[in-house]
């Protein structure tokens, strides 16, 4: 009896998979786009993969739910593509793979669809509500926004803005101009010191309750700001990096494992402060915490 039931379940599963497969329609389009042209893509559910290539054209391939239509048009300077769903209120997943000129400006918006981008040296504007954003490479400008989705950046964008509310933001790389913000999501920043250029110049990293982890080197003359309400902060820099620190916490603890400077009582008669120079100084790092713990330490 149990064998019969199992066989029945397998048969039902195979039928279901086959029906799902049959319900998907493959699409493929190609259009000319200038090497520095712009493209906008909207796919609410499913996934979007964008890859840069050394051609002046766009190739869009994917699979859509039966009945849905891929709408795509525009000229060599700018084009737009989106999925016209048969049911706007309950769109089904579409899987899209987009090849674009590496220097193109790419704008992608989804609801729950994940976005993966690699090999783009132009500008990126990526928006998800609940999906995940993952970017690898060296875009000139990268703006990534999520409501509750995670954001992961691996590389060296010249300019980076990453925001999520409850999602985590992870940045493995470096940039000369960074702003990362979350509400409860954690923030992790790790530079790539191997090539000697993985340093930060201008950065603003803030959360409300999310933990902040920063392990990176800082340029001489840099200006870096950290803010949190109650998230714990762990800031690690190479011991020899010259930094003028200004750390203040209203009700949280400050721990200095970077050098021998002592934590003092806050200037307003409450909380604690640490104003000190590490090594020769030169860069400015400001850390503000309401009640989250702050730890300074040496980066390995």
């Amino acid at each position: 009896m149990s064998h019969l039931r199992r066989a029945l379940l397998v048969a039902i599963s195979i039928t279901a998979i086959a029906r799902v497969g049959a319900a998907q329609v493959k699409v493929e389009r190609g259009l000319h786009l200038d090497a520095d042209g712009s493209i906008r893509l909207i796919n609410l559910v499913g996934s979007v993969r964008v890859t840069g290539w050394e051609r002046d054209s766009v190739s869009l391939r994917g699979s859509l739910p039966k009945g849905d239509k891929l709408m795509m048009g525009g000229g060599p300077r700018a084009m737009k593509a989106f999925i016209e769903s048969t049911d706007d209120r309950n769109p089904q997943p579409s899987t899209l793979e987009l090849m674009v000129p590496a220097r193109a400006k790419v704008w992608v918006k989804t609801a729950t669809a994940d976005i993966d981008v690699t090999g783009i040296s132009g500008d990126l504007d990526l928006y998800v509500v609940g999906g995940r954003i993952r970017v690898s490479g060296k875009p000139t400008e990268l703006n990534a926004e999520a409501i509750d989705g995670d954001i992961e950046v691996n590389g060296k964008p010249n300019w980076l803005r990453a925001k999520s509310a409850s999602g985590n933001v992870t940045f493995n790389g470096s940039s000369s101009d960074v702003a990362i913000s979350t509400v409860s999501g954690g923030i992790t920043v790790s530079s790539v010191p191997a090539d000697g250029s993985g340093k930060f110049e201008r950065a603003k990293i803030e959360s409300v309750t999310g933990a902040i982890r920063f392990t990176a080197d800082i340029e001489k003359g840099a200006a870096i700001d950290f803010d949190t309400h109650s998230g714990s902060m762990e800031i690690a820099i190479p011991r020899k990096t010259g930094v003028d620190f200004d750390v203040a916490s209203i009700a949280g603890s400050i721990t200095n494992d970077l050098n021998y400077a002592k934590v003092a009582k806050g200037r307003y008669g409450r909380g604690s402060e640490l104003v000190m120079t590490n090594a020769t100084g030169g860069a400015r790092v400001t850390i503000r915490s309401f009640k989250g713990s702050v730890t300074l330490r040496s980066a390995k």
Partner: peptide
Amino acid sequence: SPETVAKLRESIKVIDAAILEARNA
């Protein structure tokens, strides 16, 4: 989606709590 609205409300609640705490201080 209702899930997103719920998560948004949760995030707003987190910020409001921070505002209230900082304001009282």
